[in-house]
């Protein structure tokens, strides 16, 4: 196990380096740059722009800029946002919790509903419910999230006026209830896809378990169907679900991006989009690296869980 982890760690570091090189290069190849937004300022001359580029170190060769960035990064200095003037870590941290709140809520919703649909689908295989759930999951996976959000806003915010159209809270309020009401729409919209995914996994996980010997044994012992299900099926199916949760980690950045855009939710996705459109390289690179680390971490967790669950490894 130790050598496995060490090996993985080595591979991960190389991967992170590759990701950072590609990311940095692609970003800097995009024409324009962080100073472009000032080009229309009245009274601003090319002389001023050139001076600022020099002061900000943007006129240095790409390699030099990259190694400068890498060296600082290794020392724990993520740099300062061009747009915000704040340390990148602070900027990211500020948006991280908004995204965590949104994704956490949505995760709870999707796990709850998805598990129920999945198990019911498996235990009532080929029933009308199962068919509807299967087809429904497929449709849910096919709906563009942002469009679902738009329809939600149209119905619940503009027509019925039950829910706010966007934002995380009302200025000057910010009570728990206020957050909650702002959370409802974006978290359900975000949950839609996950409900579909979770319910499919839960269904097949349950089906895998349901036919195994020990479940039959348990049934033979005279345990009620419900108890068997709760104790064994759910218990066993939950392990693969942890794997899946691990795989969801990297979605922190990209998963909520469009939902955050539609609902003007001040999270990581929006931050990424804004930073990209302002060419705020330090923030984009910070987000990119964070996301890559999470992806690798997610894969690692998934692999470890699989290794732990796999009986061959357990025996060894």
């Amino acid at each position: 196990m130790a050598s496995f982890l060490l090996n993985r760690l080595g591979q991960s570091i190389i991967l992170l380096l590759i990701v950072s090189i590609i990311g940095f290069t692609v970003l800097n190849l995009i024409p324009g740059g962080p100073l472009a937004q000032y080009a229309l300022t009245p009274g601003m001359t090319q002389e001023d722009m050139d001076r600022l580029a020099r002061q900000m170190g943007l006129d240095r060769p790409l390699m030099v800029q990259y190694f400068d960035w890498l060296w600082r990064m290794l020392q724990g200095d993520w740099g300062t946002s061009y747009r915000d003037g704040q340390p990148v870590v602070d900027v990211i941290a500020r948006h991280l919790w908004a995204t965590l709140l949104l994704m956490g809520t949505s995760m709870v919703i999707s796990v709850g509903i998805g598990t129920w649909i999945g198990i019911r689908g498996a235990t009532h295989r080929y029933s009308a419910f199962d068919y509807v759930a299967t087809a429904g999951a497929m449709v849910a996976l096919s709906i563009p999230t942002f469009w679902f959000g738009l329809v939600g806003i149209y119905v619940f915010a503009l027509r019925l006026e039950w829910l706010p159209a966007g934002n995380m809270y009302t200025i000057g309020d910010g009570s728990f209830a206020d957050y909650a009401i702002h959370l409802i729409m974006p978290s359900f919209v975000l949950a839609l896809v996950n409900i579909a995914v979770w319910s499919r996994y839960m269904r097949s996980a349950t089906l895998d378990v349901i036919n195994q010997d020990f479940v039959n044994t348990a049934r033979a012992k005279g345990l009620t169907e419900r108890r068997v299900l709760m104790k064994h099926v759910v218990g066993n199916a939950l392990l693969p679900m942890i794997t899946l949760a691990g795989m969801q980690l990297p979605n922190l950045l990209s998963g909520a991006l469009v939902t955050e855009t539609v609902f003007t939710w001040p999270g990581m996705g929006r931050l990424f989009l804004d930073s990209l459109s302002y060419s705020d390289y330090p923030v984009v690179m910070g987000l990119l690296m964070l996301s890559a680390v999470l992806t690798l971490l997610g894969n690692l967790i998934a692999d470890i869980v699989v290794a732990l669950v796999d009986p061959r490894i357990r025996l060894a």
Binding site: I30, P31, G32, P34, L35, A36, A39, S277, Y278, S279
Partner: peptide, 13 residues
């Protein structure tokens, strides 16, 4: 059309 950070960069100046 291009994003703000692109169009008002070298393309413009």
């Amino acid at each position: 059309n291009m994003p703000a950070a692109v169009i008002w960069g070298e393309f413009w100046v």
